[in-house]
Design a protein around this nucleic acid. Structure first.
Length: 163
DNA sequence: CTACGCTCAGATA
DNA sequence: TATCTGAGCGTAG
């Protein structure tokens, strides 16, 4: 699985398809297609608040995330591994993640998460600022929309804090 | 080497 | 409380 993307509206979807020259006609074998269909349903269920642990499910489906290729430095790989150990509904902070891997670089942790190509599966929405603000999500443009999205994800998971 | 960021803690009003 | 400021440090270029 290469990446998961979210868009603000249809125009953004078309722009993305055009920009990356995506081709949906590429033929997939039955197993691949089956996994995609299942994952699609899982994500739908997840967004409906059914308590799905997506990372766990992806492993069960033997979908290869190629994390070593996506996160090549030790620091970024450690950040992701730490994050993947968090449970559904957990909330942690950038500083916590840093501390766990022996670094004070809370801001650098955010930099790694910014480039997360697998939101939802790699639950970067569970990482917020220590002062209680949600912090950023998926890059800097469309900031309000993305922060709203992050907040909604936390609400979907039923996080204990108020957002 | 430089610039930048999904940060943090401390200071100030 | 709200805003500002410098420290901090891994990454991309």
């Amino acid at each position: 699985l290469k990446e998961i993307q979210f868009f603000k509206n249809e125009n953004d979807i078309f722009a993305y398809i055009y920009k990356n020259k995506l081709n949906f006609r590429k033929k997939k074998d039955d197993i691949e297609q089956y996994k995609i269909d299942v994952l699609k349903n899982l994500i739908t269920d997840y967004l409906a608040g059914k308590g799905i642990n997506l990372y766990e499910k992806v492993n069960e489906l033997s979908i290869d995330l190629a994390l070593r290729e996506k996160f090549q430095t030790k620091f970024s790989y450690d950040v992701i591994q730490t994050l993947l150990q968090s449970n559904y509904g957990d909330v942690t902070t950038y500083q916590d993640i840093g501390t766990k891997i022996g670094s004070k670089a809370s801001r650098a942790v955010g930099n790694v998460l910014k480039s997360n190509p697998l939101p939802l599966i790699i639950p970067c929405h569970r990482v917020i600022r220590k002062d209680g603000n949600v912090g950023g999500f998926m890059g800097k443009s469309n900031k309000e929309w993305q922060q709203d999205f992050k907040t909604k994800l936390l609400q979907i998971e039923g996080s204990k804090r108020n957002f």
